[in-house]
Simulated assay, not measured.
Amino acid sequence: MNELKGKIAVIYGAGGAIGGAVARAFAREGAKLFLTGHRLAPVEAVARDIVSAGGDAEAAQIDALDEQAIDKHLESVMASADRIDISFNAMGILPTPDLEASLVDMDLKQFWTPIMSYITSYFLTARLAARRMLANKSGVIMTVTAPPPRIGTPNGGYGPSQAVKEALTRYLSVELSPQGIRVVGLQAHAMPETKTITEIYEGRAGMMGLTWEQFTGYLAGTNHPKRFLTLAELANVAVFVASDKASAMMGTTVNVTMGAMD
């Protein structure tokens, strides 16, 4: 317990399934949370849960694609807490654009939109957090990716967007690790607790002719234990990676696919 006691953490996309789960786990381990999201209501709901459980969390409505909004919010965090120890980007795009579209048939905007959105958000939040972390030569920058770029799942620009995020994790680490700042990603796979899997099923259901049980059974069958990764399990890994116990872990994307990827 208290692996993150006294740590100051900013989470983007905190109103989503992954961001909310990580926020609650960080709070249980003693971190003070500054939660953000494109819509305020779900972020406030997470903050209320944390506070009611005895934790410390504040909610703010921030567009994770808006550089000025991110910068202004981080300035307010610095004014309140005097430092930033953890930046966690769980920003997602819902509905996920053009998951089922053919690469041959789609136009450039369809292909480029998820790439531009995911990489812009990760770059801005990481860069602006790093500028604050450099003063103390300490901090952890984190994000979440998915396996499609490694297995070639046909889903337009979504897979390439995740590949670019993993590359940026390595690039940022090369630059920031000598300054005491770790950069690490988490690669998760097929969690029915998130809206993304529901969207994929709804997009492919007619084409595949599968029931929800058949679809999720197929996905679970692609990993070693033949069951799904849970949000709680992912959040527990995030706690470890963010903690000082993972001080040797940097410049990599942690495989949390339960064996689906080797």
Rank of each mutant, 00 (worst) to 15 (best):
W212Y: 01
L229W: 00
A81K: 05
L40N: 03
L231G: 01
G217T: 09
G152I: 11
A130V: 13
L168H: 08
G15F: 05
D56C: 12
D85M: 10
N255A: 02
A220T: 09
R150E: 15
T222S: 11
M142F: 11
S87L: 13
Y171W: 14
G259V: 07
F26V: 07
F34I: 12
R204A: 09
G159I: 03
Q179C: 09
A17T: 02
A64Y: 03
D63I: 10
E3H: 12
Q162C: 13
D66G: 06
V140N: 04
I8M: 10
M91D: 02
V46Y: 08
A59C: 12
A246W: 01
G15W: 02
T211R: 11
V184K: 02
L210I: 03
A31N: 01
G157F: 03
E3P: 00
L33D: 08
A163W: 08
P192M: 08
I181Y: 01
E166P: 07
L74M: 14
M261F: 07
Q110D: 05
M249I: 15
A81M: 06
L103Q: 10
L103A: 12
I62D: 05
M106Q: 14
G6M: 06
N89M: 08
T194L: 06
L229M: 11
N136H: 12
M142Y: 09
G6Q: 13
L35P: 13
P147K: 02
Y171I: 14
F240H: 10
L229Q: 08
G221V: 11
T257Q: 02
F240R: 04
A238M: 04
A232S: 12
P95N: 04
K7P: 03
F123W: 14
K5M: 12
A238Q: 06
K137A: 09
T216G: 00
E100S: 14
T36G: 05
Y118T: 11
S80M: 06
E233S: 01
D66S: 12
K165I: 15
V164K: 02
I200M: 14
D262Y: 12
P147S: 03
L103D: 14
D82V: 04
A248Q: 05
K165P: 00
D66C: 09
L4R: 07
H73W: 14
L172H: 06
E44W: 00
W212V: 09
P154T: 04
E100R: 09
N155Y: 01
V43Q: 05
A242L: 06
M1K: 13
V241G: 00
R28I: 04
A14I: 04
S80W: 00
Q68K: 15
H73S: 10
N136T: 09
V164S: 07
L94I: 11
F111S: 05
F111C: 07
K72E: 15
A130K: 08
A146E: 10
Y218A: 11
M261P: 01
G139D: 03
P95R: 07
Y158E: 02
A129V: 05
T253N: 10
W112F: 12
M78W: 04
A59S: 13
V174L: 14
E175L: 10
K5S: 15
T253S: 11
